[in-house]
């Protein structure tokens, strides 16, 4: 860990003015700083700026960026109306980490690609232009969708996958004023700038996440991993499916663990709208969602795994038998 200056900000304005890397829960940032994958010169502690309330906003819910994962998952309103969000948070990390990690910080979690963590090996995300060691290496956990020549890292989190499926909105403040981004559009695909994980600009601060009115749909988060608990997703599926009698009125489905961002495809979802649920329909949907999926050897299995998991989750969400 390199030396840094430490400043405790007492409000958001002071944090924005301080200039430095924001630290909230610190559960990922300090992990990376200890390994010198991250080497900020200045830390601005935003744990005391407020932004830690969960409050109704219209029919939706406004979640402060400093709300701890555990509090968000346990919030009675979230449990009742956005159970997908509770489920996704509870599927992630450990209770200890969820008690500390924040809503904003979780969105900014960095990849778990082992080469990103290994300073001895090339990694374009860590050191632009140095190369990608994951291709041809151990890429079991890495991307099958939206990857580039430069990078096949995945976004490793769970909560943001649910936020994408729930059509949440990320609210941001910064030197150039406040703005919003859809949760599904917050993270970036690597292209030739894999060092940029998100569309957050330097100096900007996530202030809150807004959940729209609940759909009343059946919400499921299914996470598939190598250990039953306390492990990152190989594939996860977040689904919010609203039925109308025997047909699907609206389905939103996001995949985790397969790309540098939660993977959603509106045109694939359109296939489901107004259709009666069937194995064939879900198969077509999964094929469309996974169109262009490419394995890198070790992670080839993720393509059939994602397909099967999507079909199982949609089957369950539409009242069928997952088997």
């Amino acid at each position: 860990m390199r030396p840094f200056t430490y400043t405790r900000a007492e409000d958001a304005a002071a944090a924005l003015a301080a200039g430095g890397r924001f630290i909230a829960g610190g559960t990922n940032l300090l992990d990376l700083m200890k390994l010198q994958v991250e080497t900020p010169d200045a830390l601005v502690d935003i744990n005391h700026v407020g932004l830690d309330a969960i409050a109704p906003e219209g029919e939706g819910l406004l979640v402060g960026a400093l709300v701890r994962n555990a509090d968000l998952a346990a919030d009675p309103r979230v449990r009742r109306d956005w159970p997908l969000l509770s489920r996704a948070i509870l599927a992630g990390a450990s209770a200890q980490i969820r008690n500390r990690a924040t809503t904003g910080g979780n969105l900014l979690q960095r990849t778990r690609c082992p080469y990103f963590y290994d300073l001895d090996t090339p990694c374009n995300k860590r050191q632009p232009g140095s190369g990608c060691s994951a291709q041809g290496g151990f890429n079991r956990t890495l991307a099958i969708l939206g990857a580039s020549e430069a990078c096949i890292a995945t976004f490793p989190g769970d909560m943001p996958v649910a936020l994408a499926a729930l059509d949440a909105e990320i609210r941001i403040d910064g030197p150039n004023g406040a703005r919003t981004l859809p949760a599904a559009g917050f993270h970036r695909l690597p292209g030739d700038t894999p060092e940029r994980d998100t569309n957050l600009e330097p100096g900007e601060l996530i202030t809150s996440v807004a959940l729209p009115a609940p759909t009343g749909g059946r919400q499921i988060y299914r996470k598939v991993r190598d250990r039953r608990s306390f492990a990152f997703a190989l594939v996860s599926v977040a689904a919010d499916v609203v039925m109308d009698g025997g047909t699907i009125r609206q389905a939103r489905v996001a995949l985790g663990g397969v790309a540098a961002r939660p993977w959603m495809l509106p045109e694939a979802q359109a296939l489901l709208d107004g259709q009666p649920p069937s194995a064939a329909l879900f198969g077509r949907f999964a094929d469309r969602l996974l169109a262009g999926a490419k394995g890198h050897g070790e992670n080839d299995f993720k393509i059939p795994l994602a397909r099967r998991t999507v079909i199982a989750v949609l089957t369950e969400a539409t009242g069928g038998d997952a088997a």
Binding site: R112, P114, D226, R227, R228, S229, F230, A231, F232
Partner: peptide
């Protein structure tokens, strides 16, 4: 210990 998977309690 995040990637070398010794069994966790739930396993």
């Amino acid at each position: 210990l995040a990637e070398y998977h010794v069994p966790a309690n739930l396993d």
